[in-house]
Every structure is written in C-alpha cells, then in structure tokens.
Design a binder for these strands. Structure first.
Lengths: 205, 205
DNA sequence: GACACGTCTATACTTAAGTATAGGTGACTA
DNA sequence: TAGTCACCTATACTTAAGTATAGACGTGTC
C-alpha cells in the first residue's frame, strides 16, 4: 500500500483531501501542517512514497522548501501543490526536481490519477491551469530576466538592501545595483518596491 | 437529509470537502465553481439548506457576493469560507448577515460540527483561527499607525516615491519622509519595500 | 576570428531615502 | 491652563538607490 504524506497549513483542505484519498484508493495517508512537521514525520519512518507540499505553507519560502525536502530525502518523490501559483512557478518547480505539480484547480479524480502517475515513476505537470490570460502576459516579462537578475529579484522580495543582497550572492554591491537597474527596466517598473510587489502579485516567490 | 451547496473555485478543495461531508455525515452535497454557478443551482431547486461560499472565488468581489446570495435567497443560510481572511473580514461578514464563517484552518471534524451548528439555526464564528499568532501581532502593529501614516503606507503599497506621495496627499516631501520614518519604526521594518510587502501580506490594501 | 551575451568590477555621479533636531499649529484633555 | 498628540514644515545631514560609462572574463555561436 503506497504511503503518502500531505503537508498543507489549512487543516480543512489537508484533512479532507487525506480522507478522500483513503476512501477512494488504497492509500495510507499521513498529514503535516508545515514543512518542518513534514520533515520530522519523514525522519521517523522511511516508508513514505510520495510527499505533497503546499506551495504557500509556512516554512516553504518559495521553492526553497522543495530543495530542502529533496536534499534530506532524495529517494522520496516530491510533488508541489498550489492554489495560486502560475505556469512559471510550476515549471521552475519541475526543473528544480519536483516529481509533480498539483494545482488546486484539479478535480478530485484527476488528483488520484496524478498521484498514481507519479507513484509509477512518471513526472506530472498539467499544461492547462484553467483560465489565466492575465498571467500569460506576466510570464513574458519575467522570462526576459537572466538567472542572476532572478536571484536578485528574489531577494528584493524580502525587502533586502543592495548591500545585503551583495553579501548573500557573494558579489560586489555595484554589481547588485547593475542587476537591479537591468531588472527594473526589463519589468518596466521604476523602483525596487514596485519590482517586489509585481513579483509577489504574480506569485513568483 | 440536509442539502448543502459548496461553492469554491478550487476543484480539488471543493470536491474533497464534498466527498468528505457525504461519507461522514448524512448530507446531500452539491458543488459550484463560482458565485454565478452557485446562484443558478440555487434557482433550479429551492431545497438548499446551507450555502457555503469561498471568499476568494470568482464573482464574490469581497463581501458583495454574500449580499447577492442573501438578497436572492433570503431563506437559505449562507456561510463564508476562507483560507486567508482575517478577523476583520470574518466579523464584517457576520455583521452583514452571514450565518457562519469557516476558516480553512478548521479541522475536518470541526467543520462538520460548525455545519450542524448553523443548520440548527445558530450562527457560527470561531474566535481563534488556528495558528495565527503572526496575524494578531500584525493587527496590533497596524493599529498603532495614525491616519496619515496609513494613507502613506497605502501609497507605498503601489511603489510610489516620496515626491509622488507628497503630491497625492497635498503635503511637502519632508512630511512624507517623516510619516515614512515613523511608520517604519512602528511596523518594525527597515525600509519602504518591507513595509509594502508586510501590508500586502496582511491584505491591508 | 568576430560577435553577442551574461557576468563581474570600477569610478563617478545624481537623485531618493531615511535620520535628526527644532519649531509651529490645532484639537482634545486632565 | 498646561499637557499631550497628530500633523505639518524647515534645515541639515548621512546613507541608499539608481544611472552612466567603461573595461575584463568566459561561453557559446555564426
């Protein structure tokens, strides 16, 4: 019997999904309310086949939580679940090693299919996230950013100063200023606050 | 057998909650993906006992959707469900006539109890939204802000400069700097970007 | 090889942001 | 009446943010 661990901070969502999976299929479902709790449970027993992480859960810090989970338990399959994330986040998650991406716009039946798919060793990414025409516009803007610029933007989204970003990325402050200037013009905004707000609005980080 | 209609745009959340309610209790559960769909279903059959509306669903437009539902079907009990809303939203919803407020931090068992409670004619409002100490802390922080500081913060949340804010509020730029400085220390953040992100995170603007 | 591109750094500059201190006004209050 | 407080302004300052220009390095491409 496959063991599944669902981590979501919304008790209601988590428990009902767990209950549904257990009744519909022959799954053993465990639950956790945040990333740390999930990792603790994983540590206790090494028999988890699939870990499902909510993207907006405490401890996740964007896709950093995905990396943590994968680093600690490389053998376990990890899927990301989100109600708000867009294509960019999903693709980034997949390229960063997620085994599946589960939008909450999925039907309950499709969820079961997706889980079986991932459990069988495949990687699952739905290509249609329902109606999101406004999001596609934003994708183009962010896709123009280089790797370094994206990393810089990520730090802007925590409200860090150029000096702090420089320290975190191990580069000079002038270089950070360059990255900031370039990403501002690429995103067509006029200061770092607007850049951070835009990225947050699009749920990039 | 009580008839319940759940309206939520996340198929996964909606269907699993519905499935859970049907298996655990003797409920007849219908579902809708948005407000209009919910109202259509209500129109087709007048036997719905409880309507559960997701706060962030298409068509809701804040609490306006609650009013619409109540206006069209005054006899039906209406509860609001939300994963992000804070105490203020919940209280406002209750004063505007909602029969219940269901945070998604509720456990599945509590949900059933809440539904039974509402169905029996009571009005349900949980006073603790699960683990949300950060929210209560934040509420206190923002309540310390003066009227002008709040207006300033609102403009920060659009990424405006001090000069632009000064023009909008018809005051000098120095005064804006003063307001910014004071609100930064009251919110315990170190720059305008962090202030804007904090306010956005708490859904203030 | 020439070229484009991303990355990093340096110098130099302008403008914006944020701090500090001081003082004036009006409203409300003990 | 004296005190408090939100609000506004002024001057002066330091630091941060953002722009501009130029050069160096590596990678990959035509």
């Amino acid at each position: 019997m496959p063991n599944i661990l669902i981590a979501d901070d919304h008790d209601l969502v988590r428990d009902t999904i767990a209950a549904y999976l257990e009744t519909v299929e022959d799954f053993e479902v465990l639950t956790a309310a945040n990333l740390n709790e999930a990792l603790e449970i994983m540590g206790g027993l090494d028999s988890i086949d699939l870990l499902i992480l909510d993207y907006n859960m405490p401890g996740m810090n964007g896709l950093e939580g995905l990396d943590r989970a994968r680093a600690v338990y490389p053998a376990c399959k990890v899927a990301l679940m989100s109600g708000v994330a867009n294509r960019d986040v999903a693709k980034t998650a997949m390229t960063r090693g997620a085994d599946g991406f589960i939008p909450k716009s999925l039907t309950a039946a499709s969820l079961v299919n997706a889980i079986k798919f991932v459990l069988s060793g495949e990687r699952y990414l739905p290509f249609d996230f329902g109606t999101a025409p406004s999001e596609t516009k934003a994708e183009g803007e962010f896709s123009k950013l280089s790797a370094r610029e994206l990393q810089t933007l990520e730090q802007l989204c925590v409200g860090l100063s150029n000096k702090e970003i420089a320290r975190n990325l191990n580069i000079q402050e002038v270089t950070v200023k360059l990255h900031v200037k370039n990403l501002l013009s690429k995103l067509k905004v006029s200061n770092r606050t607007q850049a951070a707000l835009l990225a947050k609005e699009r749920h990039l980080f």
